[in-house]
Simulated assay, not measured.
Amino acid sequence: MLHRYRPGDRVLDVDAADLVSLLERHPNRDEKVGVGIDHFEVQAADYSSQCFRVVRTDGTWARFSYKPCIAPHLF
C-alpha cells in the first residue's frame, strides 16, 4: 500500500481504514494518535524511502512505521 502513493499524497479512506487498524498495534499508539486521527499521508523518509504520517485532528502530525505494528510483541 505504501508504494501506491507518493510523498505528499493523502491516503484514500479505503486504505486509511486499514491503517487505523494497523496503528492500533503500534507500541506507541497513544503518542501517535494524540487527540485523534484526521487523516493519513505519505511522506519522504530517510535513505530515499517513505513512511506514513498520521495527521491529528488538531493539525499536528507524527510519522509512523508499519514495521513495529506487524512485529511479534514480546510479553
Rank of each mutant, 00 (worst) to 15 (best):
M1H: 14
M1F: 12
L2D: 12
H3G: 11
H3A: 09
H3Y: 15
H3M: 09
R4C: 01
Y5E: 06
Y5W: 11
Y5M: 05
R6Q: 13
P7I: 08
D9M: 05
D9C: 02
R10Y: 09
R10E: 15
V11Q: 04
L12I: 13
D13P: 08
V14P: 00
V14Q: 13
D15G: 02
D15W: 00
D15T: 01
A16P: 08
A17C: 03
A17L: 10
A17Y: 09
A17K: 11
D18A: 11
L19R: 13
L19Y: 12
V20S: 04
V20E: 11
V20L: 09
S21C: 06
S21T: 06
S21A: 06
S21K: 09
L22S: 07
L23K: 06
L23E: 03
R25M: 08
R25C: 08
H26S: 08
P27C: 06
P27I: 07
N28T: 02
R29Y: 15
D30W: 01
D30S: 12
D30V: 09
D30Q: 14
D30K: 11
E31S: 13
K32H: 09
V33C: 06
V33F: 02
V33Y: 06
V33A: 04
G34V: 01
G34L: 03
G36Y: 00
I37E: 03
I37L: 11
D38W: 07
D38R: 13
H39G: 01
H39E: 07
H39Y: 12
F40I: 03
F40L: 07
V42R: 07
V42K: 03
V42P: 02
Q43Y: 08
Q43S: 12
A45C: 08
A45K: 12
A45Y: 15
A45I: 06
D46V: 13
D46Y: 12
D46E: 14
Y47L: 15
S48A: 15
S49Q: 15
S49C: 11
Q50A: 05
Q50T: 06
C51T: 13
C51Y: 00
C51Q: 14
F52M: 01
F52L: 04
R53G: 00
V55M: 11
V55H: 05
T57N: 04
D58Y: 03
T60I: 00
W61K: 07
A62Q: 14
A62G: 00
A62Y: 06
R63G: 02
R63P: 01
F64V: 06
F64C: 04
S65R: 08
K67E: 10
K67I: 07
K67F: 01
P68N: 06
P68A: 05
C69H: 04
C69V: 05
C69T: 09
I70Q: 07
I70L: 12
I70A: 07
I70P: 01
I70S: 08
A71S: 14
A71L: 11
P72Y: 03
H73R: 15
H73Q: 14
F75T: 14
